[in-house]
Design a protein around this nucleic acid. Sequence first.
DNA 1: TTGTAGGCGTTATCAG
DNA 2: CTGATAACGCCTACAA
Lengths: 341, 341
Amino acid sequence: MTDDPAARPRRGSAATIYDVAELAGVSASTVSRALSKPGRISASTEQRIRAAAEQLNFRVNPIARALHTGRSSTLALVVADITNPVIFGIVRGAEQAASAAGYTLVIAESQESDATEAEAIERLMPSVDGMILATSRLADDRIVDIASRKAAVLINRAVDGIDSVLLDVDEGVQQLISHLSDLGHRSIAYLSGPDRSWISERRWDGLLGAAEERGMALVEIGPNAPTILGGREALRRVRAARARAVVAFNDLIAIGLMQAAAEQGLEVPTDLSVAGFDDIFGSELIVPPLTTVRAPLVSAGERAVQILLHRLGAAAPPLDSGLLDTRLIVRGSTGQAPPPS
Amino acid sequence: MTDDPAARPRRGSAATIYDVAELAGVSASTVSRALSKPGRISASTEQRIRAAAEQLNFRVNPIARALHTGRSSTLALVVADITNPVIFGIVRGAEQAASAAGYTLVIAESQESDATEAEAIERLMPSVDGMILATSRLADDRIVDIASRKAAVLINRAVDGIDSVLLDVDEGVQQLISHLSDLGHRSIAYLSGPDRSWISERRWDGLLGAAEERGMALVEIGPNAPTILGGREALRRVRAARARAVVAFNDLIAIGLMQAAAEQGLEVPTDLSVAGFDDIFGSELIVPPLTTVRAPLVSAGERAVQILLHRLGAAAPPLDSGLLDTRLIVRGSTGQAPPPS
DNA sequence: TTGTAGGCGTTATCAG
DNA sequence: CTGATAACGCCTACAA
């Protein structure tokens, strides 16, 4: 006696399993089973259900599923600054790995502020299955706390007991120092990154060790904002230090330094050798092209997702679980040390 | 007679409004009200509820809320290629505007494939409140279909009846053509973008109009992949065409062309003037720095989000609703036309 | 193999 | 102003 609404979902909104069930003449739970665990259901009904779902253009509602299962098939990637080209590679790698596994990636930017970062994390926490912290400004204990509540993986930072994707800085740093040494440099200035940046300190440590080995002098100039502007502003102190070879925390700083140097008539690499880290887009575009320690950023993003998926039981562990290699890319910004004056 | 579990939520998982309610000695619905619409509740109970929520470290579960309200406070941004620097600005603007409004941004990459794009959209559709299609490869009718099911806004593409953020190409193009004309160029080659790219055709149309006005010759060379490699591969045809002034679909193509030209001993801008579109990161880094038509990408991303939020009733309409201005940035890659031979 | 009956955490409706 | 109660769409014991 009621009219038959089976052929279409109610009022414009998306079809539900009930609509499909009605059309296929089965119960909603059967539909649910047919769609989520194929094979555990009679072939003929499964056939009918699939046809009905198709006809209704049905999609499971990930939100409803997530509410019940507690898993949203969503991963969060938290970064300090989206405009930093270092992030691009990580984002790309993570996005590809995530979507290949049927996961969605949400991106949050902390804008270099730990308060903003903490807030973004809290906000995202209930709706993601895991978090990737790519350039966290958070203190170790905050990170431990986060990881205790949700699967988490760090990129380029180590905290005891927390999964992380680490780069083998030493490898590239050794190559870099040896390269500069070969060019006759005996003294190096390191333009450090932001204060309390874990990765900046790792790079500094690596440089320190490598410089000591070769009896080279090393001074630190910083902290510097990890941006082109940060590099430009560092020139003054570089000149004051009479540095002839500068290693910057990242390529952005190196590029800024080179720009400012050029404006003041300083020749790179004749008067000043400059090297960076990361090998971002743009590093080989500038003149002279930048000598830099390349980091496999895309792989880092990929691996972070793989680790997370493995932790979530949604994938096999990453094939290769060691450190990611870094290596020196020699281009034109480093040259022979000027003769001692 | 039962033990009192009020002080902590059950077994490790996050606290719910019931936990808060129990601790505060009120009902769950009161908690819900107190937290979502402050003021509509007695000050004292609201006080107590807030304290209890605080103590339990309670966060509303966005998934549960979304299931009931049908709104997830999430926006999707669909792009063709994350590695394309044009996207960076859009992502940044969109992310900032979204998170400022308490919205989450999810990013999906279609990898230049319309099938992948359609799939990503279908997958995201049920769990977002709106979609931004930034570089869609989809046909008009598919887009219309999507927009009929979910709030949608296009960037850099117009489809009848669909909201979009458009750039005033003509403005920048006029300036560019007039600039080249002033330099004595009478003939221009346009390196077009991907086949069926809406924006490439708009740029072509603009160039055509401006060139006609000035009686300049214009030829199209393409289609080209919108990448550095695409630009490199175009050099051969540029030489064959004896072009002295080239306008590339985007900066990436322009940069690739300049690289290849330099390798073959062609001087820019002496032998060849090159200009691009977008003013991406890197355009002013290369040598000579690239003359380009700047697009306000960050603003485009911002405005797309604003439009969406307005459509969703979550914000006021964008203050300025006209076309976004583009304008010529003259740098070193364009120069005097060589004397007629 | 299939159906029934909760329940996931929240909000909205409707009484009180 | 506050408290029951019923959805939201899906999944999963438990029954049949």
